[in-house]
């Protein structure tokens, strides 16, 4: 790390603290949502500088992209400003002070940033770096660990996404009793979108195929560079959000109907899970992709390809369903 990088990281970290304080301070929830998007972008930059490229890509797509869209969708249905202030401030501050003290106290025995002899660098991590070329043979070690060595965690993660999808559909699927007020901020929930604004419409429509192409690249190139099923799914969802913005919610819904999205949300986890079951039937352990082909390394390749596809399908289906659920709630 050069001195310049070090100062840049310090600068960004300080800026993040200031942004976080501003998020807590502002009464305007719209501003708070935007600021937390900016906060995520800054964390993504730091993650990138700290050699975590996959995380940086994901944080940028999720924190600055999807969660901002969700916040806007929810704010349009609730309220744009905080009414009441705080309660139990003294107690909260006391707890906060104690925990901060504990954490800062703990830091002084921590290994310094970048220390090659830190315990975290000595035990399991070098094994992954050393064995990945031999067992999995993909260039991106993060993908190897994520999809194979700790593939069971990623299975769980896929089901977390699936659970969230079920939850939002369950909670917002049924039409509300009363007529909720629609805020003008919810532009993407409008029936016509930006159809009357020619320039954004033309530019936007031109962009969508490229975004989808990029998503496919991220999906299938995850072995070689940062990316994978989750990031690809997020990018596809983003392109659908853009389409809904340009052409209106109705059009987007017709392009990808609700039943299809639900099917995708449910099929993705099944693809992942049954890959694991197939490994069992072929005589291996659950999720042991080595048995999927004659050559164990090829088996790993097939396995990773298939489960990444499962993740991508799940995330696409779930995120678009969630987006539609919020948007449709406003359009009624």
């Amino acid at each position: 790390m050069t001195v310049f990088t070090v100062f840049f990281i310090i600068f960004l970290l300080t800026l993040m603290v200031i942004t976080a304080l501003a998020i807590v301070q502002t009464k305007n929830l719209f501003a708070a949502a935007m600021l937390s998007g900016i906060f995520s972008l800054m964390s993504a930059m730091i993650f990138f500088l700290l050699d975590a490229a996959d995380v940086a890509l994901t944080e940028a797509a999720v924190g600055a992209g999807i969660s901002t869209v969700l916040f806007l969708g929810a704010l349009a249905l609730t309220a744009e400003n905080e009414r009441a202030g705080t309660a139990g401030r003294a107690a909260a501050l006391a707890v906060v002070t104690v925990i901060t003290a504990v954490l800062v106290y703990a830091t002084f025995d921590m290994p310094r940033l970048g220390d090659p002899n830190a315990p975290a660098q000595l035990h399991v991590a070098p094994w992954y770096l050393e064995k990945t070329p031999e067992y999995i043979d993909v260039p991106n070690v993060v993908t190897a660990v994520l999809a194979s060595f700790r593939g069971y965690d990623t299975l769980g993660e896929t089901f977390v996404v699936f659970t969230a999808g079920i939850g939002v559909l369950f909670l917002l699927g049924k039409a509300p009793v009363g007529q909720p007020k629609v805020s003008p901020a919810m532009t993407f929930a409008g029936k016509t979108g930006l159809r009357h604004y020619q320039i954004p419409r033309v530019v936007g429509r031109l962009l969508i195929p490229f975004i989808l192409l990029f998503a496919l690249y991220v999906q299938f190139h995850g072995d070689y560079s940062p990316g994978g099923g989750f990031q690809a799914g997020v990018i596809v969802a983003a392109s659908v959000v853009l389409y809904a913005l340009l052409e209106g919610e109705e059009q987007a819904r017709q392009a990808l109907p609700a039943w299809l999205l639900r099917l995708m949300a449910a099929t993705g986890p099944l693809i992942y899970g049954f890959t694991g079951v197939a490994c069992m039937l072929l005589g291996g352990n659950f999720l042991d992709y080595s048995v999927l082909a004659h050559d164990p390394v090829h088996g790993q390749h097939y396995g990773i390809l298939v489960i990444e596809a499962g993740v991508g399908v799940t995330v696409t289906g779930v995120l678009i369903s969630i987006f539609h659920s919020f948007a449709a709630r406003g359009a009624k």
């Binding site: 976080a20 807590v24 609730t78 905080e82 139990g88 909260a92 954490l103």
Partner: peptide, 21 residues
């Protein structure tokens, strides 16, 4: 910075009354 951010978040969760906040 991790400790400070954690606690800013924690403060907002516990002390703020607005659910979105």
């Amino acid at each position: 910075v991790f400790a400070i951010l954690l606690m800013i978040g924690f403060y907002a969760v516990t002390a703020k009354l607005n659910l979105v906040k």
